[in-house]
């Protein structure tokens, strides 16, 4: 028998909702977080969008507007950043004691985990939408009625993509003990996943060792599916994207739930 006494009651959806709401409210109230996440996205969007605008990109022989290419990649990358950092909110709760209040409540840890995951996923979704709408307004995607259903279709894709990333953020923060290790996570997990995801450069324009590295990065598939939905073209068949995303999401959420269930709060 382990040291921890874990409640194994069924899911409490009222609790799931209030915890998700807490994440959203918390994000909205912390204006510095809202502003910095928007500003970061905008910087990426305009600097990379403008910087890469002269490149010629073709996928399957179809020429692609490089700004649209970059904008769709950046929209996907927002998930990576907000998802992992959102998961780090758990770290804050752990350090400032609030986690105890949650842990001692008569709800299962899976309930706590689901509420938080949902909250961060929704928050990520909002930011992705803001990024896409901004790109549309400045004309990166051109003006086209098909954008309406493309934007609607991106919602479930973004949600699916964020599940795995949030799971990753939660797993990391249940195991970290202080904010100092944060830089490590940034340098060794987020940045590599960002640079070799194909968000900024085309899959067929890089050397083959890089292509292999990209195929090993689970986030490459999310970026690819984003492109398929937003631009109508992609490098990888959509069903491969879907399988990898579902697999990665399920795996990371399970790992996250497992380490959350084992987490000691004292």
């Amino acid at each position: 028998m382990s040291d921890l006494n874990i409640v194994k009651s069924k899911m409490n959806y009222g609790a799931v909702w209030i915890l998700a709401k807490r994440e959203l409210i918390g994000f909205w109230r912390s204006k510095s977080r809202v502003i910095s996440s928007l500003a970061q996205g905008l910087l990426f969007l305009f600097i990379f969008g403008a910087g890469f605008s002269s490149l010629d990109i073709t996928i399957d022989g179809v020429p692609i507007d490089s700004r649209a290419f970059t904008a769709s990649g950046i929209a996907a990358i927002v998930i990576l950043f907000t998802g992992v950092f959102g998961g780090m909110g758990l770290m804050r709760d752990k350090m400032f004691g609030f986690m105890k209040e949650l842990i001692v409540a008569p709800v299962s840890r899976n309930t706590l985990m689901l509420g938080r995951t949902l909250g961060i996923a929704l928050q990520t979704l909002m930011q992705v939408m803001i990024m896409i709408i901004l790109s549309i307004i400045v004309g990166y995607f051109g003006y086209n009625l098909s954008l309406i259903w493309r934007v609607i279709l991106i919602l479930p894709v973004a949600l699916l993509a964020s599940i795995g990333i949030v799971g990753m953020g939660l797993t990391i923060s249940t195991r970290l003990r202080d904010f100092q290790s944060f830089g490590l996570i940034q340098t060794f997990i987020i940045m590599p996943m960002f640079w070799i995801s194909g968000a900024l450069f085309a899959f067929n324009s890089v050397p083959s060792f890089m292509q292999i590295a990209m195929l090993f990065n689970p986030f490459t598939y999310s970026v690819d599916l984003f492109r398929l939905v937003l631009l109508g073209v992609s490098y990888i068949p959509f069903w491969v994207d879907l399988i990898v995303m579902v697999g990665f999401g399920t795996l990371l959420i399970l790992i996250g739930a497992r380490s959350f269930n084992k987490m000691e709060v004292t």
Binding site: N12, R22, I25, F98, M99, E101, L102, A105, V107
Partner: peptide, 27 residues
């Protein structure tokens, strides 16, 4: 009901909201 040795409140929420969240968690 338990009051821990160190404060276990969400400081970024209002007092009432802390209580509300607790009440919902307790069904």
């Amino acid at each position: 009901g338990i009051v821990f040795q160190e404060p276990a409140l969400d400081t970024e929420m209002k007092g009432g909201e802390n209580l509300e969240l607790h009440a919902i968690l307790y069904g």
